[in-house]
Design a protein around this nucleic acid. Sequence first.
DNA 1: CTTGACATTGACATCAGTGTCAAACTCTAG
DNA 2: CTAGAGTTTGACACTGATGTCAATGTCAAG
Lengths: 131, 131
Amino acid sequence: MKIGELAARTGVTPRLIRYYEQQDLLEADRAPNGYRTYTEAHVERVSRVAGLVQAGIPTRLVKVLLDTEDAAARDEPTCPREVAEQLATELVGVQARIDCLTRSRDSIRNFLTATQHEVLLREEREPATAV
Amino acid sequence: MKIGELAARTGVTPRLIRYYEQQDLLEADRAPNGYRTYTEAHVERVSRVAGLVQAGIPTRLVKVLLDTEDAAARDEPTCPREVAEQLATELVGVQARIDCLTRSRDSIRNFLTATQHEVLLREEREPATAV
DNA sequence: CTTGACATTGACATCAGTGTCAAACTCTAG
DNA sequence: CTAGAGTTTGACACTGATGTCAATGTCAAG
């Protein structure tokens, strides 16, 4: 598929897809005419990248994270102690973010519940309730 | 306490503390000499703000989130349907971030485990292992 | 009183993430 | 062949979060 379709399916603008590629977070084959071509796998990849970036992970780190996943997926035990330590450090940061966000999430939930708006909480699971 | 001490205790630079105040995420009393003065409560507050901002929540939203918590803490049922809906929407976004980060966290953990570096995972719980 | 550490405000600078626009190319449909 | 939609690269611009610097004020210690 071409970039337009990928954009449509991921909700990420073509502009950003190219940007992510430029940041080495993505690779794309080229059709003979020069157009970027993508596979199904890219849909997942792009969503993932966008999600992490949105979650405040700088692209530099996103790369490390995804590279880690890729390596794991390919069963590569390529992991010098040094890299492992860096990952462990990142892990702490990621966990801190999760904790912080989790607290906020719970606050919102509690608040909504306390103000008799539990109804709205259903939208969490069922995305499209006639928006 | 003054801004320098607050900065030291939260690990957030004075520059940013002032910035957050400017963004209405913080309030500070002023000493007769004009210096900002803070209480213990501010330590928590600043850490929280910094954490959320770091987690990719724009300051504008951080304000909404913390205001919500404050309102809840003071038992104010000030919650017009409209606001509740906005919160519910934010909730979805926050949850998405949590999910995305959680996946990355698990990936890192699994990878470290798979490469015999479980040892490093302890650092998650015991922060200071002689850094 | 002087010095040095810390505060204040405000301006300027930087970096990352995005939007937007332009000029040129490709392809499909009519 | 032509028109229109989608693509390419590249440039410029903006916003948000931060760093840094400058000029000035406050205060505690010597």
